[in-house]
Simulated assay, not measured.
Amino acid sequence: MLTVIAQIKVKSGLEAKFEDLANQLVHASRQEEGCLEYGLWRTDVVGDYTFIERYKNPAAVEAHRNSEHFRQIGRAMGAYIEGSPSVIRLTVV
Rank of each mutant, 00 (worst) to 15 (best):
V46Y: 10
Q31E: 05
H64C: 02
V10Q: 09
E19I: 15
N66R: 12
I73Y: 02
K11I: 15
N57V: 00
G13N: 02
R65Q: 01
R89Y: 00
F51S: 01
K11A: 08
N23K: 12
T91Y: 01
I5M: 11
A16Y: 04
R89F: 06
Y80C: 09
V10R: 06
E33A: 06
M77Q: 11
L14T: 11
V10A: 13
E37T: 11
Q7F: 07
I73D: 01
V61S: 04
I5S: 08
R42E: 12
S29F: 08
I81A: 12
V92L: 09
N57H: 09
T3Y: 05
T91R: 09
D20Y: 15
D48V: 13
Y38Q: 07
Y49N: 02
K9N: 14
G83C: 08
D20M: 15
A79G: 11
N57E: 00
S12K: 15
S29I: 13
E15F: 02
E53R: 00
W41S: 09
V10W: 14
A22T: 08
E33Y: 03
R30S: 06
V10Y: 11
E62P: 02
N57R: 00
L25H: 03
T50G: 02
N66H: 15
V92M: 07
E53S: 03
P58T: 02
E32Q: 03
A28I: 05
N23C: 08
S67A: 11
L90R: 12
G74W: 12
C35V: 01
K56R: 03
I52L: 08
V61I: 15
V92G: 07
E53K: 04
G83P: 06
E33P: 04
S67M: 08
T91M: 01
N23S: 12
V93M: 12
V93Y: 05
I88E: 10
R75Q: 13
F51R: 03
V45Y: 08
H69N: 14
Y49Q: 02
V92N: 07
A63G: 03
L25C: 00
E62F: 00
V46L: 14
H27C: 05
V26M: 05
D48M: 13
F70T: 15
M1D: 04
E62L: 11
H69S: 13
Q24T: 01
A22R: 04
S12P: 09
R65S: 04
V87C: 03
V26W: 05
G47H: 10
T50N: 00
V61A: 02
V10L: 15
E37N: 09
G34A: 00
E15T: 08
L2S: 03
T43P: 05
H69K: 01
Q72N: 13
E68S: 14
P85W: 10
E19M: 13
E82P: 14
A59V: 12
I8C: 07
L21G: 14
M1I: 10
F18M: 03
L2F: 14
T3H: 11
E62N: 09
H27R: 11
A28K: 11
F18N: 06
F18K: 09
V93N: 02
I73A: 05
D20W: 14
L90S: 10
Y49K: 08
R30Q: 13
Q72G: 06
E82D: 09
V26K: 15
P85K: 10
A16P: 04
Q31L: 13
W41E: 05
G39F: 14
W41D: 06
G74E: 10
G34L: 00
S84K: 12
A76I: 14
S86M: 13
A6W: 06
M1Y: 15
D20F: 13
E15P: 02
